[in-house]
Design a protein around this nucleic acid. Structure first.
Lengths: 110, 110
DNA sequence: TGCACCTGCCAAAAATAGTTGGCATGAGCC
DNA sequence: GGCTCATGCCAACTATTTTTGGCAGGTGCA
């Protein structure tokens, strides 16, 4: 199965996804990728931020499953790492949040 | 207008809402409130966390517009602050994110 | 008055997240 | 070889967020 596009993630995963989205930089990155795949250095130039900074944000987005990466060789032999937005659909309401919260694992109980 | 339930928030607001949701504690708080209004001290006991901690999280949720508060006097004169979940509906997809990102205000451009 | 609740606020510590700048590697190209 | 462009990674900061513990004020009640 693996529906491919998260829609009913368990609590921990939901937190991870939301945390990944809750950042201006990452929102812009995602927006840029929504327009098509781009490789890291190019993306950094497009957004006007350093590569190091971009990498950190890309990793967080990737870990959350919001973007995917493919290493490719350009015609002239350069190794380019392309990123693209993963298709996803999340519907948040008090109810869906409550459902997800019920599956949270984090440390508790005495 | 003010549709009451955010659905197409501008970028900055979206980040605020997502940040408010991206936390196990706050997800649980929201879940607890989804079941009905509760006053602060009671909620803290229900969740097993300190009042001070709960207050911080409630404030963040309130600022994001995900919960609302009403101060009320109980029959026996005690002042109780009830919180309840605000109705909201957020649909997130690469596309909706891109749209929101376009309205981000944060510091940029040379 | 003393106890049991409720609320609000704060300073300080602890834990995370975000940024910067630099260095190293590998592959074309003049 | 020397220059360009791509990738990856890291140590060191700075900035934010999270959490703790405590104190103060108010009300009702035995």
């Amino acid at each position: 199965m693996s529906h491919g596009a998260l829609s009913e993630p368990d609590g921990d995963r939901l937190v991870e996804v939301l945390a990944a989205l809750a950042s201006p930089h990452r929102l812009r990155v995602l927006a840029a990728l929504a327009g098509g795949r781009v490789y890291v250095s190019q993306l950094a130039r497009d957004l006007g931020i350093s590569r190091a900074l971009l990498q950190v944000h890309l990793k967080k987005l990737e870990k959350a499953g919001l973007v995917t990466a493919h290493l490719e060789l350009s015609e002239d032999g350069k190794a380019l790492k392309f990123y693209e937005a993963a298709p996803f659909s999340l519907h948040l309401t008090p109810g869906s949040v409550a459902v997800a919260a019920a599956t949270l694992s984090t440390t508790e109980r005495t």
